[in-house]
Design a protein around this nucleic acid. Structure first.
Lengths: 352, 352
DNA sequence: ATACGCCATGTTCACGTTAACAATGTTCGC
DNA sequence: GCGAACATTGTTAACGTGAACATGGCGTAT
């Protein structure tokens, strides 16, 4: 329990006041301007002087006052992230990736979570971050409502939406359509006559995209397109949706719009004594970390959320730093991860 | 595709430069000081003047320059959050709760994620946030290593650790010991002779605590204390641990240190044709949203992460705002959530 | 009627930094 | 050896806000 002697080391008068540039200057026997030059790596400082200044800075545990710097330079080097529900795996992953990349690029990240999904909440969040003087904002808002609200964001502050469909602002997103297409084609290639789809809530950008990919894959091979059952992304809703589907005669393959709902589906099928994949094949979407340990391990579509976050930051910095803005929309391809929840349908095994 | 006319409304000369206090003052025909008083709700402003100033502010879309304000007041109203892996459900939930509560209290939140779990990474993160002039820091670091590193945090900046055991700093945490005790006692009460424990990695604060609770519950009823098998929180490790346990004769109840590992356990048991709960009862820890939809729905210990986050913020603000600091450690009680993965053991049914 | 006090507002300054320009000393070319 | 270019350092002035103090006008108590 010894007293910690780190930092906050005594100034000359031990007056406890944080050292400022003038203090360093006095101790090093130079003007404050020379100290500023050392800090900003200005070339016009002799190495002898630089050493003296650095020593003084260390001795006083000097930290630059960023408020003063911001005031005079007009740059805050801060970015804002607006996010819906960072409890979800996707948004959480993107947030982490964004923060890492931002820090590497010398920016700090302030966050604002959305308490609701209406235009008002988005406006408040933008307002809040703007009042924090962020130089740019990344929104993780996979909802059509918030996407629409983006249209009303005050111009002037660089803005990027990740995982948010076609918007009035630059965007980075995983190709949901492609992922759904791949998943469905995988099931058809195994020999399933058609594929039932359990979709997500329609006010999320991903849901209609995934549905479209599924539908097009069926149409491309002239298959019947069954009715879509809609859930709300939760395991609970997947569980209920699956119970509805059990009555369908000949059902052998289900493409579920996310892994949580797929979990609910697996459970419902298990309860109904329906074997997966022998009786029914199931494909999910997202590849959450748990998916590989479902019963059975889930075939699903992996989205590289980290990459989405990094590219989103990249796109934002292009705007912030005024680089020649490249294309306004970047698309990340997903990967189909085949595990144990899909196989050849029984009907096909029966009649070769 | 019409041009958006919102905000950024034209200044008098449409010179595009952001309006400052002086501009508002001129337009309203007052001094900048009166504008400042209106902004800060100073009482000594006549309502007529106030109206005029507010109108001018609206017309110019004036936003106060927080850097200037910070410079003169010395207060940033910013807090920092350091977090391990916000991809995990617990940390993510706490982060959201902290941000909400902070914004409500008028503070902004900057984040710093830890790329590694050593003392160096923690030091860097603290350094980074300090350089951002945060007024306080909350660390979400459930590791004994980072906890130990907290000891070396520079004094002077208020600090709180959430979910981090006994530390050199004020702490808020769920009572892990109690949760484990409740879980184990529940199994014993059902009639199981003893309970096997699959523990978490020992360098996490929670792991030894949960193990201790489990052990004490067994000892309290004079039961045999089996060897602990250790996993790494992942479903994969739970799966492997369970395979090791299958050989144990008479095994009828398992207390797993988190829900993900419990998921792996459920899968391993399923693969081995062992019925849960009929052959073996399983209890998890955390109550992640998916737990209710495992096969079978998982009996587990719920932690109120939101509450931990809020209390953590509360504790931090006590320090920041210099209130009479209350106790330095707050403990949140967990809840046992009984679902379908636990029941009376077969042995007991056999011989009544 | 006058002085006192209070209310509303204005003036001046400081916060800590960087930009712009000024002022040294130093070296090099011819 | 002298002027010009250069390297190094210093001086001054912003940046936009809030604190502290100053000012003026008006009502009221005496």
């Amino acid at each position: 329990m010894s007293v910690d002697p780190v930092v906050d080391s005594p100034g000359e008068d031990s007056g406890r006041r944080r050292a400022v540039m003038a203090d360093v200057a006095k101790l090093a026997g130079v003007s404050h301007m020379t100290v500023s030059r050392v800090i900003n790596d200005h070339p016009a400082v002799s190495s002898a002087t630089r050493e003296r200044v650095l020593a003084a800075m260390a001795q006083l545990a000097y930290r630059p006052n960023i408020a003063a710097r911001t005031l005079v330079t007009g740059r805050t080097r801060r970015l804002g992230v607006i996010s819906v529900d960072t409890t979800l795996y996707g948004p959480a992953s993107m947030l982490v990736a964004i923060e890492r990349a931002a820090r590497d690029a010398g920016y700090a990240v302030a966050i604002a979570s959305l308490p609701a999904l209406d235009r008002r909440a988005l406006g408040d969040a933008v307002d809040f971050l703007t009042s924090q003087a962020v130089e740019g904002i990344i929104a993780i808002t996979p909802h059509t409502t918030t996407m629409a609200a983006l249209r009303h964001v005050p111009t002037g502050v660089p803005f990027v939406a990740v995982e948010g469909g076609k918007a009035a602002v630059p965007t980075v997103a995983v190709d949901q359509y492609l992922g759904a297409f791949l998943a469905t084609r995988h099931l058809l290639a195994l020999g399933h006559a058609t594929v039932v789809h359990i979709g997500g809530p329609q006010d999320w950008y991903e849901a209609p995209e995934r549905e479209r990919g599924w539908r097009d894959a069926l149409v491309a091979e002239d298959r019947e397109v069954p009715e879509v059952v809609v859930g709300d992304w939760s395991a609970r809703s997947g569980h209920e949706a699956a119970k509805q589907l059990l009555g369908i005669p000949g059902l052998s393959a289900v493409f579920v719009a996310n892994d949580q709902m797929a979990l609910g589906v697996l459970r419902a099928l298990h309860e109904a004594q329906v074997s997966v994949p022998d009786d029914i094949s199931v494909v999910g979407f997202d590849d959450i970390p748990e998916a590989a340990y479902f019963t059975p391990p889930l075939t699903t579509v992996r989205q590289d959320f980290g990459e989405v976050g990094r590219q989103g930051l990249d796109l934002l910095l292009e705007q912030v730093e005024g680089a020649p803005r490249s294309r306004r929309r970047r698309v990340i391809p997903p990967d189909l991860v085949i595990r144990k929840s899909t196989t050849v349908p029984l009907t096909r095994l029966d009649s070769p």
